[in-house]
Simulated scan of single mutants.
Amino acid sequence: MLVINIYMIVGFITLCWIITRLVVFLLTKKLNILRELQLILVYICIVVISRMVLLPLHLVNGHLGTIVFDASRILPFWMNLKPFTFVNDFYDGWKTNVIGNIAMFIPVGIVWPFCFKKLNTIGKSILAGGGFSLSIEIFQLLFFDHCSDVDDLILNTTGVVIGSLIYFGIKKAADKKK
């Protein structure tokens, strides 16, 4: 059993980020400080979403809560594969969950196409953001107290769609002005 806190999550993401950026530097032999500063936006998206998804939103004894990895309790996976259960299954906080899942991924739809030039269409941006959301849902299968939910995937991807529409709408308006 491993109890995971916010510092461990941020530390792991930061370590992976640094290693990735070092590998890119070693392969390209280029360091563009402006590009690295731009990519910090992606890093922030990943850290904030990881915090929101993995840890309880409420404080536990005045502190951020933790998650527990216990290999003996992973199976059976806890998941919902029936779409739109939130429409029928109203529970305390369902509105916050719906709005939060959408709002949390709007920045992904804006930041990722801004930072990654290959995400040059709304479709590519949505596919990348939806893939990110899917990877989070799969990752949650490792934690017995988390549920992987197709509704979260739908809502998160809806947030990416909204963010992409905002980004590409602004980009189109800016291109028209030129």
Rank of each mutant, 00 (worst) to 15 (best):
residue 146 H to D: 09
residue 125 S to I: 04
residue 133 S to R: 06
residue 88 N to C: 09
residue 105 F to Q: 09
residue 75 L to W: 13
residue 59 L to S: 14
residue 124 K to Q: 04
residue 163 G to V: 01
residue 148 S to D: 09
residue 141 L to D: 08
residue 48 V to R: 12
residue 38 Q to T: 08
residue 135 S to I: 01
residue 36 E to P: 02
residue 143 F to A: 02
residue 130 G to I: 04
residue 128 A to T: 03
residue 160 V to L: 09
residue 64 L to Y: 15
residue 98 V to E: 11
residue 87 V to H: 13
residue 68 V to I: 14
residue 160 V to Q: 07
residue 108 V to Q: 03
residue 47 V to A: 11
residue 161 V to N: 09
residue 93 G to V: 10
residue 52 M to L: 13
residue 96 T to M: 05
residue 171 K to N: 12
residue 61 N to P: 00
residue 97 N to R: 15
residue 59 L to D: 15
residue 152 D to C: 02
residue 59 L to I: 02
residue 68 V to N: 15
residue 62 G to R: 11
residue 146 H to N: 13
residue 67 I to T: 08
residue 49 I to F: 08
residue 152 D to I: 00
residue 58 H to Y: 14
residue 61 N to K: 12
residue 147 C to I: 14
residue 135 S to L: 10
residue 133 S to P: 02
residue 62 G to C: 06
residue 131 G to N: 09
residue 114 F to K: 06
residue 48 V to P: 09
residue 79 M to C: 06
residue 150 V to G: 01
residue 126 I to T: 03
residue 151 D to A: 05
residue 58 H to A: 14
residue 55 L to Q: 14
residue 77 F to H: 11
residue 101 N to L: 01
residue 60 V to E: 15
residue 37 L to S: 03
residue 35 R to G: 07
residue 74 I to W: 07
residue 167 Y to G: 02
residue 146 H to Q: 15
residue 104 M to H: 02
residue 168 F to K: 09
residue 120 N to G: 09
residue 46 I to E: 08
residue 36 E to R: 01
residue 78 W to M: 08
residue 47 V to T: 10
residue 63 H to M: 12
residue 72 S to D: 15
residue 150 V to F: 02
residue 106 I to K: 01
residue 165 L to T: 02
residue 115 C to E: 01
residue 103 A to D: 05
residue 103 A to S: 04
residue 88 N to D: 15
residue 94 W to K: 08
residue 91 Y to T: 14
residue 61 N to L: 01
residue 71 A to L: 07
residue 95 K to Y: 07
residue 133 S to A: 14
residue 86 F to G: 04
residue 111 V to M: 01
residue 154 I to T: 10
residue 118 K to W: 10
residue 134 L to K: 03
residue 78 W to A: 10
residue 53 V to K: 02
residue 130 G to E: 13
residue 112 W to L: 12
residue 46 I to Y: 05
residue 52 M to H: 11
residue 39 L to C: 02
residue 48 V to I: 15
residue 144 F to M: 00
residue 113 P to T: 06
residue 84 F to L: 15
residue 44 I to T: 13
residue 38 Q to Y: 04
residue 56 P to T: 13
residue 102 I to T: 03
residue 37 L to E: 10
residue 35 R to N: 15
residue 96 T to N: 09
residue 158 T to F: 00
residue 101 N to D: 09
residue 122 I to C: 01
residue 47 V to M: 11
residue 98 V to S: 05
residue 85 T to D: 11
residue 172 K to L: 00
residue 94 W to H: 13
residue 91 Y to I: 10
residue 168 F to Q: 08
residue 115 C to S: 12
residue 122 I to N: 06
residue 66 T to I: 07
residue 137 E to K: 09
residue 163 G to D: 04
residue 159 G to M: 04
residue 100 G to F: 06
residue 96 T to F: 06
residue 120 N to T: 06
residue 89 D to I: 02
residue 74 I to G: 10
residue 117 K to C: 03
residue 172 K to R: 12
residue 80 N to D: 14
residue 98 V to Q: 10
residue 110 I to D: 01
residue 163 G to I: 00
residue 138 I to D: 12
residue 89 D to H: 12
residue 62 G to T: 07
residue 137 E to G: 03
residue 48 V to E: 14
residue 122 I to F: 01
residue 92 D to S: 07
